[in-house]
């Protein structure tokens, strides 16, 4: 009797090992454990054996039953329903099921990154209108009618006498009027220039303007804040230089150049061999602008700067044609 049991155990386990699918498993289950199964039949004979042997044989029989049972479980796990009959699916190197994904425009991503940096530095983020008046776009910024600086900003004029803003600077005055001083704010926004389009110029682009108004703001402050900003944007120390630049709404005004990131200042085609990239016009806010903002320039001073957001986006992602940004081509947009 004991020998029979052991034989069945060995036979059963070896057969279970060879099972290829859950159908075979089911058959084997019936073959051994079914009502007329081999093990069941054998156990039925248990009543015929000597009483004193019963506990011993019974114990062995139970052990065998258990080990066959756990073998079945193990094999059954292997042939879970979903994988019935398909050995390929067990190739774990196949890609997972794709999660549908959308994308943010690269400009949005860059803009949000900058907004976070400025928010952390205590700046408000405010957006202004795209359709702007001549007063806020020019006059309030110390660019009176027929000022030559109006030429440097080719303007789209509208039939209602207004214009499409040529820079984000109008928000300097609007923000001062609304929030007074002290004030720290950045104004990201869409700008428009009436000029022919090519790979590096578009009629539409983005800037991010910044303004800080407080008591006793100095040139030393502007330079320090700009360096802090560039460190945050480029995530490393960037060599900068500042030189005079003329913008009617600042006095004095500078151009802040950064050491070319492509050639590290050696000179390359991107920086036109100069080693420097013009990136950040800035300066102390002109007293006429502070006055237009409803504040007293004797009491308050401040600085303003303009970041070429579109330019940063192109630098960051290596985009060589500005027109892709407004072109709506999904082959481009889906990359982000």
């Amino acid at each position: 009797m004991l020998d029979d049991l052991k034989k069945i155990k060995l036979k059963a386990l070896s057969e279970f090992d060879k099972i290829k699918n859950s159908e075979e498993l089911e058959n084997l289950k019936v073959k051994y454990l079914g009502r007329n199964g081999e093990l069941t039949k054998l156990l039925k004979n248990l009543k015929d054996i000597a009483e004193e042997e019963k506990p011993k044989v019974g114990k062995v029989a139970n052990e065998i039953k258990e080990s066959i049972g756990s073998a079945i479980e193990k094999v059954a796990d292997k042939f879970d329903d979903s994988s019935v009959g398909d050995i390929q699916v067990n190739n774990l190197t196949l890609p997972g099921i794709k999660t549908e994904k959308g994308s943010l425009h690269p400009n949005t991503m860059m803009q949000y990154e900058l907004e976070q940096i400025f928010t952390a530095m205590g700046f408000k983020v405010i957006e202004g209108p795209d359709l702007e008046s001549e007063y806020f776009n020019f006059t309030a910024l110390n660019i009176p009618d027929n000022h030559p600086a109006r030429d440097t900003q080719d303007t789209f004029w509208l039939d209602d006498g207004n214009l499409l803003k040529t820079h984000t600077s109008p928000m300097q005055v609007r923000a001062m009027k609304k929030y007074g001083a002290p004030l720290r704010a950045v104004f990201p926004g869409r700008c428009f220039r009436f000029e022919a389009t090519d790979a590096s110029h578009d009629s539409t682009f983005y800037q991010l303007e910044g303004l800080m108004i407080d008591k006793d703001i100095s040139i030393a402050n502007v330079i320090a804040v700009m360096k802090e900003l560039l460190r945050a944007v480029f995530k490393r120390d960037v060599k900068v230089r500042q030189r005079p630049g003329y913008f009617p709404f600042v006095e004095p005004g500078f151009e802040l150049d950064i050491n070319c990131l492509i050639c590290e200042g050696e000179g390359c085609s991107v920086c036109k061999q100069s080693g420097w990239l013009e990136l950040l016009p800035c300066g102390l806010v002109h007293p006429n602008v502070i006055r237009a903002g409803g504040l007293d320039p004797k009491e308050y001073s401040g600085f303003a700067f303009g970041l070429g957001l579109t330019r940063l986006v192109m630098m960051k992602y290596g985009i060589d044609d500005i027109r892709l940004l407004q072109g709506g081509d999904l082959r481009f947009l889906k990359q982000f």
């Binding site: 549908e100 994308s103 425009h105 499409l164 869409r190 940004l325 709506g328 999904l330 947009l333």
Partner: peptide, 9 residues
Amino acid sequence: ALNEVYNYS
């Protein structure tokens, strides 16, 4: 899962 576009004004 939408793709953001920027169009002209």
